[in-house]
Design a protein around this nucleic acid. Structure first.
Length: 502
RNA sequence: GGGCCGUUAGCUCAGUAGGUAGAGCACCGGAUUUUUAAUCCGGGGGUCGCAGGUUCGAUUCCUGCACGGCCCA
């Protein structure tokens, strides 16, 4: 990584040290740059700190922009107004060069450095809010040059791999992640206002469950056992429901050791919420309100948003369709009654390749292909086949399906909810069937074993419950028109490259 | 997993119908007291992703690999 510019900066740093400059441990500011910019008044004495973005020297005068968190402000070093000894620590006698402060700034302060300045607020001839520097403290030097000031980082790989550099040079990106914070905060507030409390459940588990997915595996030295990173929080939260909590939720990461693409990421942020005494109808109400609320939050009050060039209408009520009927309509027969071979034949005819094509997987893939992929506006897909939903309660009126819904928006599944299965006997049978199926279908996404502690918990009695899972990354992607899931993850992981140490 | 595309200076990008490369920003030296991508003069900087092959000669053509992007499954 040795670059000549890196060496130039190292050398400059060495010179500054020799001239007496030391990095301070703290810097007292009177304003943030954002705050000062927002409430700018002339003739104030201020102390601010930020990163140097630009330099425009004019001999006896130099302009520079400092970057705060979400705003920039101009500073100015001017001979005659800025004292000669403005650079904290710098021994002028020893330096022996020009005493013109503008020249000293030009020479020793580089683009990318973090500095603190003290001075008076003024407006320049063009009216730009500016701090006329009287004292400057070098807080830390940047040893690397910043990306091109005009275009910033364009290379998508660099944008993810060196996210910090991308964030330095791109204020919009910072605001984007600030909006992610607002989104998560409002999500918590939404559930809190409705009586839900947030509880944390284990990430490391001896048995994984609650979804169909391949897990990450690790090992505990203390417990002398293999552990898995959770693929869902469902079973843990249900144990807490049995324990007596009636409205609980958790926001956290789930881990799935599977492929990465624009909508899948191995550690994704999900919310699961459970309300005792509710059924999926109550949850649907809640979900509709939640999604609509988040759209209004992130669009500044609108009920529509743009995603991938499409206008999405999030006005309530959302459209409701039934899983089986909508699929039947497309394939021309009753998928629940059709023999397995017939389903497989349709998949083959449509060119859908299904690995380990169990009946459940065929339902899933066929539905996405014929229906899910074509959904644009928020739509509840209801009452899934029972094979697809081992944790959902059987439909109160219909055979072969469960009380479940998924929310689809722009072809993406963003919510999944059930009337939760609370019959321990039915639950045990269905989970055992999954484990059996794993052996037959050799499908590593199916569970290795039943979480017997979960069954025991259900045997103590879990009240009728409505449960909800939300893919928070995806919801935020949609509403902020981010087409790649990595664009909503502050520090995305990429495949490691060769050693890059300098 | 398959297909297509990309990888050239720190960054953004040109380019070579095969003769080892350019610009802008950034950097270095100089000029400049009101700029907003400041400007002007001068300068340094490259294993052209990696490894093979073809060739007198490869950054350029071919093959493989790595990393990334998009699409399909």
């Amino acid at each position: 990584m040795a670059s000549s510019e890196y060496e130039v900066r190292l050398k400059k740093l060495q010179t500054l040290k020799e001239l007496g400059v030391r990095y301070p441990y703290r810097y007292e500011t009177t304003h943030t740059i954002d705050g000062l910019k927002e409430n700018f008044k002339e003739g104030e004495r201020v102390r601010i700190a930020g990163r140097v973005l630009t330099k425009r020297p004019f001999g006896k005068l130099i302009f520079s922009h400092l970057r705060g968190e979400f705003a920039d402000i101009q500073i100015m070093v001017q001979k005659g107004k800025t004292p000669e000894d403005f650079f904290v620590g710098l021994n002028l006698e020893k330096y022996g060069g020009s005493r013109n402060p503008a020249k000293i700034y030009e020479k020793f302060v580089d683009i990318g450095d973090v500095i603190g300045v003290e001075g008076e607020t003024v407006r320049t001839k063009t009216g730009e809010p500016t701090v006329l520097v009287e004292r400057l403290t070098l807080l830390v030097k940047s040893l690397h040059p910043l990306p091109e000031k005009w275009h910033g980082i364009q290379d998508p790989e660099l944008k993810y791999r060196r996210r910090y550099v991308y964030l330095i040079s791109n204020l919009e990106a910072r605001k984007h992640f600030y909006r992610r914070f607002l989104f998560l905060r409002e999500t918590r507030r939404f559930f809190e206002e409705r009586g839900f409390i947030e509880l944390e459940t284990p990430i490391l588990q001896p048995i994984y469950g609650g979804a169909t997915a391949r897990p990450f595996k690790t090992y505990s030295n203390a417990l002398e056992t293999d552990l898995y990173l959770r693929i869902a929080t469902e079973l843990s939260l249900k144990k807490l429901l049995v324990g007596g909590f009636s409205r609980i939720y958790e926001i956290g990461k789930n881990f799935r050791n599977e492929g990465i693409d624009s909508t899948h990421y191995p550690e994704f942020t999900a919310l699961e919420a459970y309300a005792a005494y509710w059924d999926y109808g109550d949850v649907m109400e809640l979900t509709e309100e939640y999604f609509n609320t988040m759209v209004r939050l992130l669009t500044g009050g609108e009920e529509e948003f743009e995603y991938a060039g499409k206008r999405i209408n999030a006005r309530r009520p959302f459209k409701r369709i039934r899983f089986v009927e909508s699929l039947n309509e497309k394939v021309g027969f009753d998928v629940l009654k059709a023999p397995y071979e017939k389903l497989l034949a349709v998949a083959e005819r449509e060119g859908i390749k299904v690995k380990n094509p169990t009946r459940a997987k065929l339902y899933d893939k066929l539905f996405d292909h014929f229906v899910g992929d074509h959904i644009t506006d928020p739509t509840f897909v209801m009452d899934h086949p029972i094979e697809l939903s081992p944790l959902a309660r059987r439909h109160r009126e219909e055979e072969g399906v469960v009380e479940r819904f998924e929310l689809f928006v722009a072809g993406m599944e963003v919510a999944n909810a059930f009337s939760e299965l609370n019959d321990p006997i039915d639950q045990k049978e269905r989970l055992l069937k999954e484990v059996e199926l794993r052996k037959v279908a050799k499908d590593e996404e199916l569970p290795e074993d039943v979480d017997w502690d979960f069954i025991t918990a259900l045997e103590y009695g879990m009240p009728p419950t409505g449960g909800l899972g939300l893919g928070l990354d995806r919801i935020f992607m949609l509403i902020t028109n981010s087409e790649n899931i990595r664009d909503v993850i502050p520090l995305p992981t990429l495949r490691p490259k060769e050693d890059q140490s300098s």
